[in-house]
Structures are given as structure tokens and as C-alpha cells.
Write a protein that binds this DNA or RNA. Structure first.
Length: 565
RNA sequence: CGGGGCGUAGCGCAGUCCGGUUAGCGCGCAGCGUUCGGGACGCUGAGGUCGGAGGUUCAAAUCCUCUCGCCCCGACCA
């Protein structure tokens, strides 16, 4: 490709819009162009990279036994109502109506469509297992798109769905995909961490995310320093600090004037925060829920949402609390009636807690679970923090930011049962197909790759996804000999099957070198009177420091070797 | 949805508080010339609904009202 003919220009200045490295570089290199919030056009340079990523993914999916197909973006809302996922997605679902006012959605994912399709094609255990995938655009009306391609509303995604006769089959498909995903990230030059993940409203069993550890990542990843445990903070557990059990003492009211926060309470009574009990109020799908947790811990709302099996969860406002006769700021689980109580499991082992007295300026000492109050559920709903103990070994947990570049789920039989996708097993018994789903967002993967592979001059592409392998730049193009040899070399390199970006512009060396660095093409080849004097061209790797001369004779062959090494 | 910021040429910005001739600067772009191994220089030139609508005023990029859009923080995010 001749730069003079290429659509899409590099920009010298950093666009004001962008503040992450990948976003800035995507714009400065002319790879993408924004159309609306969270909606981007790929220009030729960016599209090339995206297609390389796509073909790596396609290749790995095919190798793993996947069959590619394509499902529609436009889907009837009714299908989503059948699984109630219209509610689960809520406002995130793009909806529209056709000319006869039939409600439609722009698919945010394709479990419903594929399950329906499979139900019509699979009748027998002999038809299974199947791995079906597509690379298709998805629409999600994100509350806040951000970070360039990191979080967008329209994006290309590879989604594969596995269909098995039983759990064992699902496990096998899952392992197969896990390996395929690992290969994809390896080939894209992207180190990832496999973490346990929350499986969301649908609730399947296992779920894992592939995380790229990066400061700019919006996810929080919890991992153990000494064992392999790693989990998204939404799902992460820790060995909670054990408070040594004391003998239960009689309940005692204490006056605590003006004390409403845990911090104040602990300070006022001169006890550690872990000896206090914190109460919070949530509205779960319209119902008030009373939540109790040890004072030094925070509630993990994802866990809470999961145990409550609700679609919408938010903190209650003061009116909603007082309505139930509860005194906010001094609420107590003791004597609470007519409200669902959820207690974190940190509350049971400790004893003689301090908590609210349900009267203003009053708290109660020596509260003990079971003796003084009961909960409808005692479960782990705590947010893990750095420094806590690993639940699987003696190690300590750390927290890092990560970019989620892949997510795999064991869906189980929710969709097959809801949408009637059954098969007849060997014994003639009708059973629901056991499903899994496996997604990778292509644009996000691209952005994460840049995030991990750049310096202050620009992108440094891993070779397999670089838009071009060679940046060929003649210096002093007016010199007819330079021009002639560069043209010839360009033809030879292309003939050798290399993808060459030929900087045929009349520009100073500085401009060309800077664009070469910005675009991040792995190998730069310069032709100039200086190199020709030595019957050579100059080769410099983007990732390396030094340039070296390559003899003109056989240059295309040796450059091909360098590129492929 | 709450909080903050911003919309002036393709890009980055000044001008807005305190209204006043033809709305500036840098980059980029076009032409000519000189240069040229790490974003060269000179000369000439093109390019603007000042996000939009309404209002106030003799006069609006500037003041007022409404509105649209974009970014950041939070909420949110299978």
C-alpha cells in the first residue's frame, strides 16, 4: 500500500477527547474515527488490524471444532420476553419498532436466537455435541461508553455457543474453549490472567474472564500471591479475619449521642470496627432488604444481587427506610420485623457486636447472632480488599486493574429449558441440552493490545496483528536512484508475500520515521543515498533499538526472513 | 440518572468574565522556492452556519432562555 493512496491520516496532536493510550493512538494513527458516543468507524488501517484479529479467532474456533454461522442483529422482543432477559438487560437493550409497530431489539447477544435455532435442528443425542459461533455486531446501550474502543455501544464480537448432552460434555467443551482462548491471546501477543467471574443474572455454574492486567482497566481483579487463585472482585472471596469468640454477654443499651457512622461508633466506644455491625438498606426489585455485615467490611452488591435473584438493586433512600419504622443511622437487626434480612457470614462467628439500637443516639452492645436476631439468609456478600487472606491457601490477596478481553460461561440448561431445546437420549428420555457460551469483543481486544504494546512514540504491533509487516521509506525520493530502487524493492517485497506500507510521500526523514513509529509497523526499511553507497538498505525493528544494513542483493529474501523470525 | 468540564477551520487552542470594525494563533492543507537521516524554512494562498433555536440590544462567539452533542467522575455494565 502506498501511503499517498491510503485513506486515513496520522495526526500529530493528541485529540482532546482521548485520555487513555489506546484511545489516543487509535485516533492519531487514523485507525478509527468516532461517529457518536460509543460508536466508531474503522478506517482502513484499523480495519486491517481488526480483520487480522478476526482471522486468528476464526482459525482457533475452527480448530476447536466450531462451525461458523451468522445470526441476525434484528430480533423480535418477544423472544427476549420468553427468557425474561429483556428485564435482565433493562435499559441496556436497544429497542425499536417496525412500521407495523412490532417491537424489535438490536441483539446485545444471541443465546435466545441460537437456542431457538438449535431446538429446531437437534432432536437426538446423535446430533450433539455442537459448537456454533459467529462474529457479529452487538448492540448494548451502555450507560456510559468510555475509553475509545474499551466500552462501546456497537461492537463486533465473536460468540460461540456449545451444546452438549450433559455436564461432562459441557466441561469438555469449556476446556476446549479455554485452550482456544489461550491460543488466541498468545497469537495476539497479549498476556492474560484467567480469573473466576460472576456469571450474572442467568446464573450458570462456572464462569471465567480473561483479563489483561493494566492500570487503565475498569475491572478489579483479586489474585493470590502464593497460589493460583484469581477472581473478579465481583465474585472474589477471602478468608475473613476471624474474630475470636467470646462468651455472649447480656445485651446492653448505650447512649451514643450524634454517632451515626461505623467509624464514629468504633471510636466512641473504643472498639475495633470489626466488633461493630453495619446495617444497610437496599431496594431489590421494589422490596426493602435489610443487610447486615461486620463493621469493617463493605457489601459486594453483585453478590447481594445474586443471592437475592433480583434484576434491580439499589440503596434505599431515607424515606423508604423510615417507612418501615427503622431509624437510619442507628438501625438494628434486633427486633426487626416484616423485612427480609440478609446477613454476611462475617456476622456469625464474631460475638458481642455493637450495632444500632433502632432509637436515635442509641446503640446496643453484645449482640449475638441467633440469640438476639435472625436473618433470612446468612451468606457471603462481602467485598474483598487487598491484604485479606486467600480462601485457598495461606497467601495474601492483592488487587489490580484489568481489561476484560474474554468471558466464558457454563450456562447449563436455563435457555434450553426456557426455549424448549430438548433432545432424546440413548434411553429415549427427553432432556434439555446443556449449554455454554464464550465471547470475545474484537475492538476491545484491539484496544487492549495497544494498551499493552506502545511507547511514547506510538504503537508497537505484535507481528501477527500488525496492519503491515514492513514500512518502506525512501529518503530523498527526488534522487532518482533511491526512487527507482525503492519502487523495485516494494514490488519484490509484495511479490514475496509481505504486506508493505510504502511511504512514497515527499516528506523529510523525520516525518517518515515518526509516522513509522506511530503506526508501529514491526520492521522499518529505509532506502537512501547513504545506504545505497554501501549497496544496502537499512532495517530497523520497531521494538528494537538499533538499525542494521541489509545488502541490496537478496534484500527481499533476507527481509522476509527477518519479518518471519 | 447525579456531579464536573467542554463545543470557535481537518486537528490543538486563544478570544466569552467586562458585547463594539474585516474572529485570531499553531499544526495540517494548496502553490512556488530553498532544504532534508528523527515531526525543516521562506513567501503566497484556501479554509469559519463561533454546536443549534429563540430572545435582549443600535450591535452577540461574548448576555439571557431553551435545546443538541462530546468527554471525565460516580451510579450502571450477560
Amino acid at each position: 500500500m502506498r501511503i499517498s493512496e491510503l485513506f486515513g491520516k496520522t495526526q500529530r496532536e493528541i485529540p482532546a477527547e482521548a485520555d487513555t493510550a489506546s484511545h489516543q493512538l487509535l485516533l492519531r494513527t487514523g485507525m478509527v474515527s468516532q461517529v457518536a458516543a460509543g460508536v466508531y468507524a474503522y478506517q482502513p488501517m484499523g480495519w486491517r488490524v481488526l480483520r487480522k484479529i478476526e482471522s486468528i479467532i476464526r482459525d482457533e474456533m475452527d480448530k476447536a471444532g466450531g462451525q461458523e454461522l451468522s445470526m441476525p442483529v434484528l430480533q423480535p422482543l418477544g423472544l427476549w420476553q420468553e427468557t425474561k432477559r429483556d428485564q435482565a438487560f433493562g435499559k441496556g437493550l436497544f429497542t425499536l419498532a417496525d412500521r407495523r409497530q412490532r417491537p424489535l431489539v438490536l441483539g446485545p447477544t444471541h443465546e435466545e436466537v441460537i437456542t431457538r435455532m438449535v431446538s429446531r435442528n437437534v432432536q437426538s443425542y446423535r446430533d450433539l455435541p455442537k459448537l456454533l459461533y459467529q462474529i457479529q455486531v452487538k448492540f448494548r446501550d451502555e450507560p456510559r461508553p468510555k475509553g475509545g474502543l474499551m466500552r462501546v455501544r456497537e461492537f463486533s464480537m465473536k460468540d460461540l455457543y456449545s451444546f452438549d448432552i450433559d455436564e461432562a460434555g459441557l466441561d469438555q467443551s469449556y476446556q476446549e474453549m479455554l485452550r482456544a482462548y489461550q491460543n488466541i491471546y498468545d497469537r495476539c501477543g497479549l498476556p492474560t490472567l484467567l480469573v473466576e467471574a460472576d456469571s450474572g443474572a442467568i446464573g450458570g455454574k462456572d464462569s471465567h474472564e480473561f483479563m489483561v492486567i493494566a492500570q487503565s482497566g475498569e475491572e478489579e481483579v483479586v489474585y493470590c500471591d502464593s497460589c493460583k487463585y484469581a477472581a473478579n472482585v465481583e465474585k472474589a472471596e477471602s478468608a475473613k479475619e476471624k474474630i475470636k469468640a467470646e462468651k455472649p454477654l447480656p445485651i446492653e443499651e448505650v447512649a451514643t449521642p450524634g454517632v451515626t457512622t461505623i467509624e464514629d461508633l468504633a471510636a466512641f466506644l473504643e472498639v475495633p470496627q470489626s466488633y461493630t455491625m453495619k446495617t444497610l438498606f437496599y431496594i431489590a426489585d421494589g422490596e426493602l432488604v435489610f443487610v447486615v455485615i461486620r463493621g469493617d467490611l463493605e457489601v459486594n452488591e453483585v453478590k447481594l444481587k445474586n443471592v437475592l435473584h433480583c434484576y434491580e438493586l439499589r440503596l434505599a433512600n431515607e424515606d423508604e427506610v423510615t417507612e418501615k419504622g427503622i431509624v437510619a443511622g442507628s438501625a438494628s437487626p434486633v427486633g426487626v420485623r416484616g423485612v427480609k434480612v440478609v446477613a454476611d457470614d462475617s456476622v456469625t462467628p464474631g460475638m458481642n457486636f455493637v450495632a444500632g439500637g433502632n432509637k436515635p443516639d442509641t446503640h446496643i452492645k453484645n449482640i449475638n447472632y441467633d440469640r438476639d436476631f435472625q436473618a433470612d439468609m446468612v451468606v457471603d456478600i462481602a467485598l474483598v480488599r487487598a491484604g485479606e487472606g486467600c480462601p485457598h491457601c495461606e497467601g495474601k490477596l492483592s488487587v489490580a486493574h484489568g481489561i476484560e478481553v474474554g468471558h466464558i460461561f457454563k450456562l447449563g440448561t436455563f435457555f434450553s429449558e426456557t426455549l424448549d431445546a430438548f433432545f432424546i437420549d440413548e434411553k429415549g428420555v427427553s432432556r434439555p441440552i446443556v449449554m455454554g457460551c464464550y465471547g470475545i469483543g474484537l475492538g476491545r481486544l484491539l484496544a487492549a493490545t495497544i494498551e499493552q504494546n506502545h511507547d511514547d512514540k506510538g504503537v508497537i504491533w505484535p507481528r501477527p496483528i500488525a496492519p503491515y509487516q514492513i514500512y518502506l521509506c525512501p529518503l530523498y525520493r527526488e534522487d532518482t536512484k533511491v526512487a527507482e530502487i525503492a519502487e523495485k524493492l516494494y514490488d519484490e517485497l509484495e511479490a514475496a508475500g509481505l504486506e508493505v506500507l510504502f511511504d512514497d510521500r515527499v516528506e523529510s526523514p523525520g516525518v517518515k520515521f515518526n509516522d513509522a513509529d506511530l503506526l508501529g509497523i514491526p520492521v522499518r526499511v529505509a532506502v537512501s543515498p547513504r545506504t545505497l553507497e554501501k549497496d544496502s538498505v537499512e532495517m530497523k525493528k520497531r521494538a528494537g533499538k538499533d538499525a542494521e544494513l541489509v545488502p541490496l542483493i537478496g534484500a527481499s529474501t533476507s527481509l522476509k526472513e527477518i519479518v518471519e523470525s
